[in-house]
C-alpha cells in the first residue's frame, strides 16, 4: 500500500446526489440523481491521476466535489491530512490556494471584460498574497512560464486563440503556487496540434513545480499519454483503479475492457478485436439494480443483477469492482 506520508489527497466514499424537485411548490424531492456514488481513491504527491469515463458518468462532478465547488452529499476528502469536508466556508476558501482547477472550455471560463493581466492577478488578490508590486512580479513570472508575452497581458481574452486561452487558464490556476491542480477536460476543446502543445506545457510545469494533477478526460489515448494512475468511472462509481500499464495491457472490468476496445485503431491495417457494447448508459436517476453495468455486460451472472460489487484489490495496486473477481463469483461463474 501507499505510504501515508506520500499521500496528498485521500477521497473516501465521496457522494454527490442532485435532488430532482417536483410537486406543486417544487419543494418535494421526487428522486435523487446519483452523479457520484461513493468513490474512494488516494493520490500521491507529484503523480497524475486520470479519471476517465463517458459523458454522464460523473467524472466532472467528482472533480468539483473534491474541491467543494459542489458541496458533496457525504464522504470525506483529506488533503495533506486536513479533512476538507469538516472545514467551514472561509477555511475552505483559503484551502483553495493549494487546490486549483482548469476548466474545459477556454471560451466560457475567462471573463471577456477583464484583461489577461487582471485575470491572472485576481487569485492573488483573493488570497491576499503580496502587495501590488509583488503581485506584478508574480504575474509576469507565471505568464512567462506558460508562454505568454508581457505585451499580451494587456489584451482581452477574445483576442486569443483556443490554445492560448487555455494557457491563460493554466496561468490563473498556477499563480497561487497550488499543490494540486484539477484539470477538467483541459484539451478536449482544442485541435490535435494545439492539444499537444498544452499537454507538453502541463508536463513541463509538473516537473518544475512538483505539481499533482487530477486529469479528467474522456479521451483514452490522451489519458494514457499523460497519467500515471487511472480510475475508470461508470455511472457514478469507480469500477477500476490501477496504474496505466496494468489498465491498458490487462483491463479486468468488463466495462474497461469494452471501453478500451472501442478506441479507433491507430493504423488502418491494425485489426482490433472489438467488444461492441449494446445500448446506452442508463440514467443515473434510475440506475439498474445490483451492478449498474449488468444490463450491458457480456459476462453478466445472476449475482450481478441483485448484489452491487465493491471495489477490491485483486492484484497489487489493481482495484476492480466486479463479481467476476470476487471469491463467490469465481465459484459460481
Amino acid at each position: 500500500m501507499i505510504q501515508e506520508a506520500d499521500v496528498l489527497l485521500k477521497v473516501e466514499q465521496l457522494t454527490k446526489y442532485f435532488p430532482v424537485k417536483g410537486g406543486i411548490f417544487g419543494k418535494k424531492t421526487l428522486q435523487q440523481v446519483k452523479a457520484v456514488d461513493g468513490i474512494s481513491f488516494e493520490i500521491k504527491r507529484g503523480e497524475t491521476f486520470g479519471i476517465v469515463g463517458e459523458s454522464g458518468c460523473g467524472k466532472s462532478t467528482a472533480g468539483r466535489a473534491i474541491m467543494r465547488l459542489l458541496e458533496p452529499t457525504s464522504g470525506d476528502v483529506h488533503f495533506e491530512g486536513v479533512n476538507l469536508s469538516k472545514l467551514d466556508k472561509n477555511e475552505m476558501r483559503k484551502m483553495r490556494k493549494d487546490i486549483q482547477i482548469v476548466f474545459q472550455d477556454p471560451f466560457a471560463s475567462l471573463n471577456p471584460r477583464m484583461r489577461v493581466y487582471d485575470i491572472i492577478e485576481e487569485p492573488l488578490i483573493n488570497f491576499e498574497m503580496g502587495d501590488k508590486k509583488e503581485r506584478k512580479v508574480r504575474v509576469h513570472e507565471v505568464a512567462e512560464q506558460v508562454g505568454l508575452t508581457i505585451a499580451q497581458l494587456s489584451r482581452l481574452p477574445h483576442e486569443f486563440s483556443g490554445g492560448q486561452r487555455q494557457r491563460i487558464g493554466i496561468a490563473r490556476a498556477l499563480v497561487t503556487k497550488p499543490k494540486l491542480i484539477i484539470a477538467d477536460e483541459p484539451v478536449s476543446a482544442l485541435d490535435v496540434s494545439i492539444q499537444s502543445q498544452v499537454l507538453n506545457l502541463m508536463r513541463d510545469l509538473q516537473k518544475e513545480f512538483g505539481l499533482t494533477y487530477i486529469f479528467i478526460s474522456h479521451d483514452l489515448s490522451v489519458v494514457k499519454h499523460f497519467c500515471d494512475r487511472i480510475g475508470v468511472m461508470y455511472l457514478g462509481k469507480m469500477v477500476e483503479i490501477t496504474n496505466k500499464h496494468d489498465l491498458y495491457d490487462d483491463p479486468l472490468h468488463p466495462y474497461a475492457k469494452s471501453l478500451l476496445s472501442a478506441l479507433p485503431t491507430s493504423h488502418p491495417l491494425q485489426v482490433k478485436e472489438r467488444i461492441i457494447l449494446e445500448g446506452d448508459v442508463p440514467s443515473p436517476s434510475n440506475p439498474p439494480s445490483g451492478c449498474t453495468f449488468h444490463p450491458r455486460c457480456f459476462a453478466c451472472m445472476d449475482v450481478c443483477k441483485t448484489v452491487a460489487p465493491t471495489l477490491q484489490e485483486v492484484k497489487s495496486n489493481h482495484f476492480v469492482s466486479c463479481h467476476l473477481f470476487e471469491e463467490e463469483g469465481v465459484k459460481s461463474g
Binding site: 486563440s161 496540434s193 499537444s196 502543445q197 489515448s221 499519454h225 491507430s266
Partner: peptide, 23 residues
C-alpha cells in the same frame, strides 16, 4: 506529418508529444 506526430499514440509511449508551432 506534424498532425500524425502530435497525436498521442496508445501503443508507443513517449514523454513529450511533438506539436506544430503557431496557429
Amino acid at each position: 506529418q506534424g498532425l500524425m506526430e502530435s497525436l498521442p499514440d496508445i501503443d508507443n509511449e513517449k514523454e513529450y508529444l511533438s506539436s506544430i508551432p503557431g496557429i
